[in-house]
Nucleic acid binder design. Sequence first.
RNA 1: GCGGCUGUGGUGGAAUUGGCAUACACAACGGACUUAAAAUCCGUCGGGGAAACCUUGAGGGUUCGAGUCCCUCCAGCCGCACCA
Length: 803
Amino acid sequence: MTDRYDHDAIELKWQKKWEDAHCFEAKDDFSLPKFYPLIEFPYPSGAGLHVGHPRSNTALDIIARKRRMEGFNVLYPIGYDAFGLPTENYAIKTGRQPELVTAENIARFRTQLKRLGFSFDWSREVNTTDPAYYKWTQWIFLKLYEHGLAYKAEIPINFCTSCKVGLANEEVVDGVCERCGGPVIQKVRSQWMLKITAYAQRLIDDLDTVDFIDRVKTQQINWIGRSEGAEVDFRIKGVEDTLTVFTTRADTLFGATYMVMSPEHPLLAKWAGSIQNIAEVKAYQAASARKSDFERSELSKEKTGVPLAGILAINPINGETIPVWISDYVLMSYGTGAIMAVPGHDARDWEFAKKFHLPIVEVVAGGDVQKEAYTDCGTGVMVNSGFMTGLQVEEAIEAAKAYLEEKGIGRRKVNYKLRDWVFTRQRYWGEPIPLVNCPACGWVPLPYEQLPLELPHIENYQPSDDGSSALSRAVDWIHTTCPKCGGPAEREADTMPNWAGSSWYFLRYADPHNDSCLASPEKLRYWTPVDWYNGGMEHTTLHLLYSRFWHKFLYDIGVVPTPEPYQKRTSHGMILGENGDKMSKSRNNVINPDDIVRELGADSFRLYEMFMGAFDQPIPWSNSGAQGCRRFLDRVWRLQDMLTDGEGIRPAMQPAVHAAIKKVSEDYERMKYNTAIAAMMSLVNDFYAKGDVTKAELHTLLTLLSPVAPHICEEMNERLGYAIPMYITPWPAWDPNALVKDTIEYGVQVNGKVRARLALPAGLPTAEIEKQALAQADVLPYLEGKAVRKVIVVKNIINIVAG
RNA sequence: GCGGCUGUGGUGGAAUUGGCAUACACAACGGACUUAAAAUCCGUCGGGGAAACCUUGAGGGUUCGAGUCCCUCCAGCCGCACCA
C-alpha cells in the first residue's frame, strides 16, 4: 500500500455515494428526535469561498454528523443570501445583469461547498433572490406594515457617498461605510423604518431564555443600551412653552444651572420669533448640519454652542431661572434632544460650563467641582439640594422621581440607545417594497395574493448621484394603479436592505417549497427553534438582532411557535493571513480553499481548520500546519498495514481507546475541536508505539474521526469490511471501568515542589500512601532536619508539608 | 472614557476548572532507509547548567499547593462612544 492516499479519488467517490443515497436529507417524520444546526448562509461573492466559511461549516458539520450517529433526525441546511451591493457593484463594473452574476456565483459556491463534503441537505437550498423566496420576505414586510411596525419618516439618514445608498446605524463603522469604507454624510430623506425599538425590552429580557455565549449577550445588551431615568419638564419663560429633558440623575436637579438643546430640536423653529440672536443660532444650526455624526464626536475635545438670547428656563425643583443654549454635543436622536446641564457632576457639562463661564454648583459631596466634574456617585451624599440634602445618591434619585411625579412635572422613563431600523435602500438589487403610493389613498399595500412583486429588468441600474432610487427609472413598473381605488399611483422605488432576506431564512428551511405560507405550522413546530447557530461576531448587532426582532414579531402574530429563533449561539474566531494580518486581497495574503483542497484534499483541509487553534479565537493560517494535518491522515491510512488478528479492543488498549472516546465526545460538544483532534493523534501514536492495531480498535478511531474527515473514514471503513457506512454507525460510548487504572502515578511534593514520582496500586489506604511517600529516597534529603507537619493526598498529588 | 477578550517555548496552542506547566502539532536539529533527494520511521527540542536552580506580561496577596482565585499595574486585540 502506498504511503499517501489518493484524496481526489476517495473524496469524489464518497461525495457521489452520499448524493445518490440522499443520506443527509432531513426527514419530515415528526416522531423522531430532531436536531437543527445552522450556519450563516453565505453571501455568494465573486471571489468564491473564503477559508473562513469552512471553519463555521465544518464545526457544525461535525455536530450534525455526530447527532445523526446518535440517532437524531438532523436538518443541516444551506442557502444563499444573494441580494446586495457587492453583486450589484460587480454587475455594474462588468456590465452584466445582477441575476446572471448571482447565478454564476451561487453555482461556484455550490461546487466548492460540495467538494468539501459538508452533510448539508441540498434538497432544501434557499436563495433570497428567488421570487418564490422573497414573496415571503415581502409578505412579512406587509405584516409589519399592517401592524404599524413599518412607517415612513422624513429623517436624516446615513448616506454613503461611494455606494450612493442610505445605511442603517449598524452599517456605519467609524464614520465610514461598513462595506466600502466610503465617507458617510447625513442626508434628509423619506425612508421606511421598522420599529425595532418597540421590541427593545424583550430583546434584552429574552436573552435570559437562550444559550448564547456571553460576548454576544453583552454586546447586544450594550447595543440596545437601556437606561433608567426620568423625564423632567422645564417651563420656558417668554415663549410659554415646556422643554422636556431626559436624565438618569434626577438627584442632581438642584445642580442644573443651564439647559442645552440639540441644534435640530424642533422647538427652535417654533421659538424663532422670540430668540433675539436668531441669525447666530441659524448659522450654528447650518454649521452643525454640514457635519456628520462622526465629525461631531471627533471634534468633541472642543465644545461649541450658542446661547438662546431672550429664552430662559425655570428649574422646576427650585424655581431658579437658568439660560438655554444650543450645542451639537446634544444629539437629537437620543432622549428628548435636550438636556439639563449639571456641570458639577457631568464631565461634558463641566467642560461646556468652563468654556462659557456658566455656574457650577456642587450637589453631591466628595469631589472638587471647580477642578473637575465629580461623577462618581457610589457613596456620595447630597448637599445644596433642599429636601434631598443628606440623602445618599441612590435614595435621592428615588426621592427626586417621586417628587417629580407628585408635582406632575416629570415622570419615570426608560430610554434605549437602540434606534429604529432604516429599512430602505436606493439600490436595484434588493427585494421591492410591495407598497403603492396613491395620491388619493396614500400608501396602500399590495394585496397578499399579488405577491411576489417581482423586481423588473432594467437596463441601467446604476445608483444616481442625488441618492434617488435606481428603480425610479423603471417608469413602466413604477406607474401602476392603486389597489384600493384603481386610480393611477406609483410604486415605492426603494428596495429592502439585504438584512431582510436573512432575517427569516432559517424558517424557510423547515419547508422550503411551500407556496401557500412561509412554512407550514406543523413543520415549524417540529423543526424550530434552531438548536445551535454558529456565526460571526460581526453579525451580533446586525443580523442576529434583526432576526430576533422579526422572529418575535412573527411569534406575536402567531406565525412561529417560539419567541426566540435560536436556542444556542456560538461564534468562531477569524482566520488571519500567515503573517497574522487580516486576510485581504490588498495585503496579498489570501488563502484560496480550492488550492488547499487540490493539494491536500478536503479531509485535511477540514481537519486543519479544526485543529489550528481554539475555535473561538482569531488564528493565523499556516500552510505547514495544514500539511501536518495531511501527514496525520496519511498516518491513519497506513494503520491498514498494521492490522493484527486480535478480537475487539485488546485489554492493553482499553484505557487509551476509551479515554479517546470520552475526550473526543466531550470536546466536540464544547467546540474544543483542537484538543479532540490532539486526542486522536495521541491514540494513533499509541497504535504506532504498539506496532499493530486490531480491526475493532481502528474502527473506533475511524468512527470518532469521521465527523471531521468523513471521506477517508468511509473509505477505510469499507475496506475494513464494515457494511454500515460511517455516517450511520452508532456513536461509541466509553466504558468508565475501562478508564480506571490499577496503578496510580503520584507526584510527591515537599512544600509544593515535586521531588519524586511514585507508582502505587489503586485503592491503598491514605496512611499507607503517606508512609510510602515519606520513605522515598528522592524525598529524604528535603526532609533533613525538618519536622513533617502534615501530608496532603489529593487526586494524584502527595504534598509533604515540612518545616 | 465605558464594556468585553487575550497575554504560556522559535510558532499555533494544551493543562481534567486550585493539584506533576509546556499535551498535540508546526518549525528546527540528529539518526535510520536511499547512489541521492522526497516520503517514511526513530530520536532531541522552555532557560541554565556539573548540579543547584529559574520559568506562564510585571508586582503583591490568599493557599499545603496558583497559568488558574483576589488586588495593583503594563501591553495587545475587539466592540461602543458627547447616549445625558
